[in-house]
C-alpha cells in the first residue's frame, strides 16, 4: 500500500532521475527550485508524461515500466491531481466539476451531484455549488479543485504548487484547510512546492530535488534540522517548532517562545538558524527569546558554520566562521542562544 518510483526522464538541458518512496496516510513534499524537474516528476505519476527509464509502482500495481512496455493510461490510474492553475472546467459549475470524475466512472448524474453537494457543504461552500469557476474566489476555487481530485477516491493525490496562485491572506487559511484535508486522506499524497513554508506546514516527509537529482530525502524533521548540503540548507534548512500558542506566547516542550504578533492555537514556529545569536554569558540584549543550550555539534560549511544545540528546545544556529572563532565554543559546552521575536514566523497548523 505505497508508492515506489524511480523516475527517469530526459529533459532539455538535463536528465531527471529521482527515486520516490511514499507511504499512505503521509504527505510527501517534493521541494526544489523552479525548473528542477518537480512538475515533470508529477506528470509521470499522473500519466500525462511517460518514463524514459525507471518504474512506477503504486499499491503493487505497475503504472509505468518502459523496460517491459507497461504503461497505464491516466484515466485508468485513479490518481487525483490539483494543478497550480487549478484548471477547473470553465463551462461547468463547481458542483459539476466535482461530479465530473464520478460521472466518468459511471455514477448517475443525480448521485454524482448529490455527492458533490455534500462535499461542498462540508467546506461551507453550498452557496457556490451552482457557480462557474470564474465566479469563485481564489480560495474557493482551490477547495473545489481539491474536492474534484478527491471525489474519485484516488489512491494517489498529487498537488502541484497548490497554494502558489493564492494571495497571501487567503493562503494561510487555505493552507490550514488543505492540511486538515490531507490529514483525513488515507492514500499517498505528494505536494510539489518551491515554497518552504508549504513544505514545512503540509508535509511529513521531504524530498529535495536539485537539477533533476535527489539532493536529500527524509522525514521533515531530519531534513530541516540536518540539511546535507548548502543548497538544501538554504532551501529548507530551518528550525521548525510545534507548540501551543496563546497570545504572543508559544509553549513547546519545556520552552516558551515569544512572538511579535499574537496567535491562538496549534502552531508551527519557524526560527531561522541565521537569526539565532550565540554567546557564552546570559544575554543582556533586548531579545526576549533566550535559552541556555548545550553544543551538540559543529558543522563548518564554507564561510558559515551550523551549530547544533540541545536544551529546552533543540535548535540549529548558523553563524559566520569569524564569530565561531571568536566564540571559541566546543562541543559539550553551555552557550546561550537568543533570537528576537520579530525574526520568528508562526503558522497555524
Amino acid at each position: 500500500m505505497s508508492l515506489t518510483a524511480r523516475i527517469q526522464v530526459r529533459l532539455d538541458g538535463f536528465d531527471l532521475d529521482v527515486g520516490l518512496d511514499a507511504q499512505p496516510g503521509r504527505v510527501l513534499a517534493i521541494v526544489g527550485p523552479n525548473g528542477a524537474g518537480k512538475t515533470t516528476a508529477l506528470r509521470t505519476l499522473q500519466g500525462t508524461a511517460a518514463l524514459d527509464g525507471g518504474r512506477i509502482e503504486l499499491e503493487g500495481t505497475v503504472l509505468d515500466d518502459p523496460a517491459v512496455g507497461t504503461f497505464v493510461l491516466p484515466e485508468q490510474r485513479r490518481v487525483g491531481m490539483v494543478h497550480q492553475d487549478l484548471l477547473l472546467f470553465p463551462h461547468l459549475s463547481a458542483r459539476d466539476n466535482i461530479a465530473f470524475g464520478l460521472r466518468a466512472r459511471g455514477t448517475s448524474r443525480s448521485d454524482a451531484r448529490r455527492c458533490a453537494d455534500e462535499q461542498l457543504a462540508a467546506l461551507g461552500l453550498q452557496a457556490q455549488a451552482g457557480s462557474r469557476p470564474a465566479a469563485l474566489s481564489g480560495g474557493q476555487a482551490q477547495r473545489v479543485a481539491l474536492l474534484r481530485a478527491l471525489a474519485i477516491e484516488p489512491r494517489l493525490l498529487l498537488l502541484d504548487e497548490p497554494l502558489a496562485a493564492l494571495d497571501p491572506t487567503t493562503r494561510g487559511e487555505t493552507r490550514r484547510d488543505l492540511r486538515r484535508t490531507l490529514d483525513g486522506f488515507g492514500g499517498v499524497a505528494i505536494v510539489v512546492t518551491h515554497d518552504p513554508i508549504d513544505a514545512l506546514t503540509l508535509a511529513d516527509d521531504v524530498v529535495v530535488i536539485e537539477q533533476g537529482r535527489v539532493a536529500q530525502a527524509g522525514t521533515l524533521a531530519e531534513v530541516t534540522a540536518r540539511p546535507r548540503s548548502r543548497h538544501v540548507a538554504e532551501l529548507i534548512g530551518t528550525n521548525l517548532v510545534r507548540g501551543a500558542a496563546s497570545g504572543t506566547r508559544v509553549v513547546s516542550g519545556g520552552a516558551v517562545i515569544h512572538l511579535a504578533e499574537p496567535v491562538e492555537g496549534d502552531v508551527f514556529v519557524i526560527i531561522p538558524p541565521s537569526a539565532i545569536t550565540l554567546q557564552s554569558d546570559e544575554p543582556t540584549s533586548s531579545a526576549r527569546n533566550r535559552w541556555p543550550m548545550t553544543v551538540a555539534g559543529i558543522e563548518p560549511s564554507g564561510e558559515r558554520a551550523r551549530i547544533r544545540l540541545e536544551g529546552p528546545l533543540p535548535l540549529v544556529a548558523e553563524i559566520t566562521a569569524t564569530s565561531l572563532a571568536s566564540l571559541r565554543i566546543q562541543v559539550g559546552e553551555v552557550t546561550w542562544a537568543s533570537v528576537k521575536a520579530t525574526e520568528l514566523h508562526a503558522y497555524l497548523r
Binding site: 499522473q46 493510461l73 491516466p74 484515466e75 485508468q76 485513479r78 484548471l87 465530473f100 470524475g101 466518468a104
Partner: peptide
C-alpha cells in the same frame, strides 16, 4: 488531461 485523469475515456 485533467478530464482523463479523472477517469474520462
Amino acid at each position: 488531461q485533467v478530464a482523463a485523469g479523472l477517469g474520462a475515456s
